[in-house]
Amino acid sequence: MSDETVITVRGLRNAFGEQVVHESLDLDLYRGEILGVVGGSGTGKSVLMRSIIGLQQPEEGEIEILGQNVAEANESEYLDLRRRWGVLFQNGALFSTLTVAENVQVPLREFYKDLDEELLDEIASYKIVMSGLPVEAAPKFPSELSGGMRKRAGIARALALDPPLLFLDEPTAGLDPIGAAAFDQLILDLKESLDLTVFLITHDLDTLYAICDRVAVLADKKVIADGTIDELLATDHPWIQEYFDGPRARAALHAKERN
C-alpha cells in the first residue's frame, strides 16, 4: 500500500428527487489496497460505486480516478479510463446469451479488435482457470452455473483487460460460508498476483476481517470514518460500535484469530 491515491472523491452529492443519498462525501482509495465499504441498507453503498464508475451522474462533487477527473474527461479519455477498471455486479450480470468464455472475451473484442481468435480463446481459458472455475464451465451458459460460479465468471470478465482497479459489489452475498471464504481467498490471491486495487462493498464481516486493508463506513450520507478495523473500534460512533462489536463481529474476529 502506498500514499498514491487511485480514487479521490470530494464533496460528492447524490439525490433522487427529494431524497438525498450522499452529502459532501469524501473518500480516498490508495494504490494496492483492498478497501471495504460498509453501511446499513439504504446508505447508498451501491450508489457510491455507481457514481464512481459513471453509471450515476452526481449532482455535485469531484471524482478523480487514476489521475483523471471523471466529469472533465472527454469521450475518448473516458473510454480509456473505462478499460482500466473491472466491475463485478452483485449477481454477476453475465450476458445470458453468451457462454462463460464468450462473456470473458466481450471486453477484449470490444477494445482490441485485432486480437486473433486463437489468442482470444487462450486468454479466456487462463482467465477462467485463474478465477477458480472448473475447465468444464467455459462452454456453459450462465443459466447452467451455480451462484458462486457465476460470480467467479463475473470476476473473470471483470479482469479480462488486466485492469489495475477492481470494483466488487457484495461479492460474497448469497454464497455459503465455505464458498464465501474461498471467494475471499480468490480476491486476495488475485490482488497479490495482479497488483490490483480493490473497492469492495460488503456486508460480510468475515470478508472485512479476512481481506480488507481498510474499511470505510457510510452513514449519515457521508463516510463517517475510515481506517483499519482497530482504528474504527477506537471511534465512539454508536453504529460503528454496534457493527464491529456485535456478536457476529466478535465471531468473525474469533474465526480470523483461529486461522
Binding site: 468464455a101 467455459a138 498476483s193
Partner: peptide, 16 residues
C-alpha cells in the same frame, strides 16, 4: 505473472 498464468494453463474447451 508468468508463474500465475503457468499455473492457470489447463486445457479448456471454449466452445459448446
Amino acid at each position: 505473472l508468468i508463474d500465475q498464468v503457468a499455473s492457470a494453463d489447463e486445457i479448456v474447451q471454449v466452445r459448446p
